[in-house]
Design a protein around this nucleic acid. Structure first.
Lengths: 363, 363
DNA sequence: AGCGTCATGTATAACGTTGCAAAACTTGAG
DNA sequence: CTCAAGTTTTGCAACGTTATACATGACGCT
């Protein structure tokens, strides 16, 4: 009962008994006996206000419990204090952790985050990028999967856009990502250094847009550099990027009669799905097959076999994304930039030691 | 260059070359040669507009590419079209999946979701519940952890609040949750039916507020009902609810010299953390120790040992939460209600079969 | 003393929308 | 042909804020 919707007919009366009425600058001005603008000046920390006046107004502000009406402020200033973050899938812990990092970074600048998910579907991504889903935002951070260059080219919109993730567009937008090719090469290099010779890649996306292409390229380049064949038969394409897709892809490779001694997965959930399949089929990780994932999500650290993974600096990515949007909003920010975030390879049990089979003679 | 911030000095000019200028009702009215209000009427599907007029205005609307200014609309109507969702931790996949479900449900009603996370900390939860974090919202869905009854009692606010989760407050707010006691009892009953006699509980929260108390109670009640001792020494308290906390708690119990034949964890991440510890210490799941989790997150289905778990109907919870908020917004909605969502127990490998030790004579 | 300069406070006009009530039309009955 | 009773359209005010430009007064410098 206490907090039901209550509104007095006469706006401007002070709050009492825990019931809130909206109090506006006008009310505060009346209470303090000054003009509305002066109250506004105090609220906005305008420079030229005498300490005495400031204190007097502040007292009224506190007494009445004034809280600015953001809609009005927005209408006047054209700013909302909200940025949107559109991610493919919240179910993937990488994106969930990234979202948390963006929310925290935004919060430091007094910005609030409106979260949306696209399911990685072009249609949804288009809607988001055109601003049809959320229209009260100052800026947009988008992690696209299927979106094409032309979809973004004619984005008729003045809301600053910052792109996240692996997709690479030749367009004048800020783009924040780790160096996916280099990171993939580091992962494959690690496997090769362990004596692995047949490295499969799971998670190349079906369809024309090939969002996973940078990681596939890294895989190919590193194998080639090591003088090993980059056998495209060992690249398994999938429809999605979840645990189940990883499991499917792993089964697919094994069913084809191949028995790679290492697997590099597009991301951790897929790697974990693949490991489950290996377990079901009696293959040991890492002895028979080493596995490397991507994203370093928390669950990779608690399986029966902990997962080696490429670990992007999520906190940095979130922070950089927010800062880029805000910079562009304020017309600071030079040319659109491609920003590289840090990453590192975290080695765990899934790549511990040399292969059992290939090195059987050692035993 | 194409989509940089561009604004003409003269608002009201039509869009051209992919550059957007803000076009208002006034511009459309001028273009169509009618009053602003008539355009507004068309936009809002007002009843008394002749088809001819409607079409004429619509043509101008389309030509100029009118899009309503939500700030102005909000200022006028007092609605934003945004509801906030405040969750403890996005890193926990349960909450991530729940967030996805809320976003989808809101989207069906043309509402957008502002996401916040509290870290499960009272201070943050208080801020959120008082509306200090997000002030542009029509309603709030909050999943509290540490918040106390008194914190909510004097919530001086007219924004509808809907509570989610296990915490139970005796306050006039809608509250959506599964029957935690019954669900916990079902989990424990399942363990007992498998012949387990010493069931540990991990994840009772330290501190006075005891957010996990309902599940602990279910554990206690079911054991007692089965004539088994509910040994409080088998209840492990933790600081958090992540994988690491589960691992810690499991180690704690084993280090104390106890060797339960089953573990019921507060949630899946804790259960998985516990299973990792069991694996490290050479205990087999489920032969030596059966494990049941809570929340049925996706990762539980892909470990080396898949996890039996209580599966709340997340889609329903999200939908019910959104509907409750909106109902209260429209002053439909009777008394504040306690709504029970469905759940079921999903049995997987971690509770497959009878204990190896206790039933050794059978072999 | 006179003048310009600067600090401080204020009145007013937007921002784009919708509710209200009145104006301008239609229609039909008498 | 008039008038009442609609139907359709319009004008105006208001939502709460801030930018602009102006008014006031204090101060320092000739």
């Amino acid at each position: 009962m206490a907090a039901a919707r209550v509104r007095t007919g006469q706006p401007g009366r002070a709050a009492h008994e825990g019931i809130v009425v909206r109090v506006s600058l006008k009310d505060v001005a009346a209470h303090a006996g000054v003009s509305i603008k002066t109250v506004s000046n105090v609220v906005n920390n305008y420079q030229h206000v005498t300490p005495a006046m400031r204190e007097r107004v502040q007292r009224s502000l506190d007494t009445l419990g004034y809280r600015p009406n953001l809609a009005a402020r927005h209408l006047r200033k054209g700013r909302t204090g909200i940025i949107a973050l559109a991610l493919p899938e919240l179910g993937n812990p990488y994106f969930a952790e990234l979202a948390a990092s963006v929310i925290d970074a935004a919060s430091e600048h007094d910005y609030i985050v409106l979260l949306d998910h696209t399911g990685g579907m072009r249609e949804q991504e288009l809607l988001v990028s055109q601003g049809f889903r959320a229209r009260v935002i100052d800026g947009l951070i988008l992690s696209p999967i299927e979106l094409e260059t032309e979809d973004l080219r004619d984005r008729a919109h003045d809301v600053p856009l910052v792109l996240l993730g692996e997709r690479d567009y030749d367009l004048p937008y800020d783009h924040i990502a780790i160096d996916n090719v280099a990171a993939a090469r580091a992962a494959v290099r690690h496997l090769i250094a362990l004596g692995r010779r047949e490295v499969a890649f799971i998670g190349a996306r079906r369809g024309r847009s090939e969002p996973a292409q940078l990681r596939v390229r890294g895989w190919r380049e590193e194998l080639t550099a090591a003088g090993l064949p980059a056998d495209e038969k060992l690249v398994a394409a999938t429809d999605g990027w979840g645990h189940a897709d990883g499991a499917l892809a792993m089964n697919h490779i094994l069913d084809s009669g191949r028995r790679p001694d290492a697997v590099f997965a597009y991301n951790d959930p897929m790697a974990i799905g693949a490991m489950r399949v290996l377990h079901e089929r009696g293959l040991r990780v890492p002895e028979d097959i080493a596995v490397v994932g991507f994203d370093d999500v928390i669950e990779g650290r608690f399986g029966a076999v902990t997962l080696t993974s490429v670990s992007p600096d999520k906190a940095a990515i979130g922070r950089l994304a927010v800062e880029s949007v805000l910079a562009r909003l304020d017309d600071r920010a030079p040319e659109p930039r491609r920003i590289r975030a840090d990453y590192r390879l975290v080695e765990r049990e899934s790549t511990l030691g040399r292969p059992a089979a290939g090195k059987a003679t050692d035993v």
